[in-house]
Design a protein around this nucleic acid. Structure first.
Length: 268
DNA sequence: GCGCTTGTTAAAGT
DNA sequence: AACTTTAACAAGCG
């Protein structure tokens, strides 16, 4: 699912495939996917080239050789795929950038929760959307200050992009598992030690996931993510089990989201 | 074929 | 007023 490590992987893919090549046109299957009117978007991108990228949390920004950017949000299922021949066109490529060299970049939108649109200024955009610093950029002091003043369950606070940008449902479960914090623990009640553990786990989990290009199978076997059953057959013995104590994991709802935890190591 | 899932946001609640 | 909670969104997948 496109959380920070996936979007970082997409960003690198975009850089490797789609820079410095004039855009011939943009095909859009469903204008619901656009946050800018099709006519304007199409006219602004035509004959321009992408010249660089920036990522904040789950948001990807592609800079044009013009005074604006294209913003991508991958929703829950978005992906990118670069291809040339129409017979290689991937499923769900509902938006296609056709480059002058004949290659194409498909923005895959299986569930239509994905969005793109033109923005003038990245910092202003982030501010207007209340998106705080990226999880790899925020300092401990700033995170500590926010966590100390919020009274919701820590899981909900960490999922809130105005706390820190880039954490999604599996990452927050992984971070809280590795920091040995119960997801329903109220944020302001956390000790300084636990907040530091959360900060360090957050950086470790995200950096590990980026290094493995978000291939869950390649994550260390002591990651809780394998309990979710997303992996291959080699991971099958880890489904539903705590990788540390082998106890059955608990599955609950926190803030409406499915939550995995080890009840013996994460206590309220 | 029903129910679950993902991230965000608007709306409702406190 | 400010923060928190909930539901809705779309559609593929098990």
């Amino acid at each position: 699912m496109p959380e920070l490590p996936e979007v970082e992987t997409y960003r690198r893919y975009f850089e490797e495939t789609s820079l410095n090549q004039p855009i011939a046109d943009v095909l859009v299957e469903d204008t619901k996917l656009l946050t800018t009117d099709y006519d304007i978007l199409s006219q602004k991108l035509k004959n321009k080239s992408f010249i660089g990228t920036k990522r904040v949390g789950k948001n990807l920004f592609a800079q044009l050789d013009a005074p604006f950017w294209l913003h991508f949000h991958f929703g829950m299922t978005g992906d990118l795929a670069y291809f040339r021949d129409n017979e290689d066109k991937p499923r769900f490529a509902r938006i296609i950038f056709r480059f002058a060299n004949g290659f194409k970049l498909g923005f895959l939108c299986p569930r239509k929760f994905e969005r793109i649109g033109i923005i003038e200024n990245v910092d202003e955009y982030l501010k207007s959307k209340k998106i705080n610093k990226d999880a790899l950029e925020i300092s401990f002091d700033e995170l500590n200050d926010i966590l100390s003043h919020r009274k919701a369950p820590i899981k909900s606070v960490l999922l809130d992009q105005s706390t820190v940008a880039g954490i999604g449902n599996w990452i927050v479960d992984e971070v809280l598992f590795q920091a040995r914090v119960h997801p329903e623990k109220l944020s302001f009640q956390l000790s300084d030690n636990k907040k530091m553990a959360i900060f360090e786990s957050m950086r470790f989990v995200i950096q590990t996931a980026i290094d493995k290009q978000a291939n869950y199978d390649e994550f260390p076997t002591d990651f809780l993510i394998h309990a979710r059953g997303w992996g291959s057959t080699q991971m099958a013995q880890l489904i539903g089990k705590c990788p540390n104590c082998n106890e059955k994991v608990q599955i609950i709802k926190v803030g409406g989201r499915t939550t995995f935890l080890c009840p013996s190591q994460q206590k309220l």
